[in-house]
Simulated assay, not measured.
Amino acid sequence: MLLTWGCRTLLDAAELLGIDDELAPRWRDVPARRAPYPTDANGLMIGADIPFAKSHRHYSHLLAVYPLYELTGSTPDERALIERSLAHWVGFEGALQGYTFTGAASMSALLGKGEDALTYLGELMSRFVQPNTMYKESGPVIETPLSAAQSLHDMICQSWGGMIRVFPALPAAWADLTVHKFRTQGAFLLSAVRKSGVTRWVRLVSEAGAPCVVRHGIAGPVEVRDGRGRPLRWSAAGEGTVRIALRKGDSALITARGDRPDLTIAPVQPNEEAPRWGLPAERPVRPEQARGPRASSRCAGAVGVFRWVL
């Protein structure tokens, strides 16, 4: 899977840079002649004669799905293969860790299953994240919290295969959502607002002049305007998808036709109060408990540090 991705990435890079590399024929030959990924009734296998038959936290046998996006569910059979492989892998309890559920969340996001992605992240939080917001296995590890952040990103925005996908896998509970200057592949800065379950507008700023294809998620006819509100030329690139020619530094605003939404960027209101993390709530200190200015200062300083970290 990594070899296939590597060869295709080398070819893409050579084309982008205008390089006629002498090794390009070899890079084309390897993916064309390699054996198909081995599968059985449970989905993708570890190797041609090695099924996935016991619990393991990592998804090395699923790299073609995520993060390489070599298998994306573009056909019914491929989608069924991904769903079967994912369910089989996560279904083995015993050696699962937090990293399992972040990977499962991102794969679910690839398939557009926002509810499943949120459920998997909930498993991470309830089963593995500690009361101080930290994560550990045999000791403290950071890759799982970072991958959890990426899983959130994958639910909100995906950019692979030459297309930017805005809000591709949101659960129903995320009816209001705002992103601002979210960097995508192709050196675009994405800003977008969703209110009451409806995407109101999408703005893209090009930092390199790369081809811009965006699945905006706005229902019905749309219009595209530049930074001064003037109409921009665009073409349809599939259902809910547009292709826009943007030069370096140009921007495009996509809205429903005739709509002029508020373009203010502001935080959204949380759905509900979240469980308290970290230190207990502060309690009033009775006069007889005070031990002088120095001790009080040390205590307040410690609380301040913990607040800043959390």
Rank of each mutant, 00 (worst) to 15 (best):
M1W: 13
L2P: 13
L3P: 03
W5A: 02
T9F: 03
L10S: 04
D12F: 04
E15L: 05
A24T: 09
A24I: 07
R26S: 02
V30F: 13
P31W: 11
A32H: 08
R33S: 08
G43R: 06
M45C: 01
M45R: 07
M45H: 01
G47T: 03
I50R: 06
I50N: 01
P51W: 05
A53W: 08
A53V: 03
S55V: 10
L62I: 10
L63I: 13
V65C: 14
V65P: 15
T72V: 14
T72L: 08
G73P: 11
T75D: 01
D77T: 04
I82H: 10
S85M: 12
L86D: 07
E93I: 08
E93R: 14
F101N: 02
S108V: 08
S108Y: 08
A109I: 11
L110Q: 13
E123N: 07
S126D: 14
S126V: 08
P131Q: 07
T133S: 15
M134Q: 15
Y135A: 00
P140Q: 11
P140A: 10
V141K: 14
E143Y: 10
T144G: 01
S147H: 03
A148C: 08
A149Q: 13
S151I: 05
S159E: 10
W160K: 12
W160R: 13
M163T: 14
I164D: 06
A172L: 09
L177H: 10
V179C: 05
H180L: 00
F182H: 10
R183S: 13
T184G: 07
Q185I: 03
G186Q: 08
A187F: 12
L190T: 04
A192G: 07
V193A: 02
V193G: 01
V193E: 06
R194T: 11
V205T: 15
C212L: 05
G217C: 13
A219G: 13
G220M: 05
P221Q: 00
D226Q: 03
G227Y: 04
A236L: 04
A237M: 04
G238P: 07
R243C: 00
R243L: 00
I244V: 07
D250V: 02
S251F: 00
S251N: 00
D262M: 02
A266D: 10
V268L: 02
P270K: 00
E272G: 10
E273C: 01
A274M: 14
R276L: 11
A281E: 13
R283T: 01
R283M: 01
R286A: 11
P287K: 15
E288R: 11
E288W: 11
G292V: 05
R294P: 02
S296Q: 15
R298W: 12
A300V: 07
A302W: 10
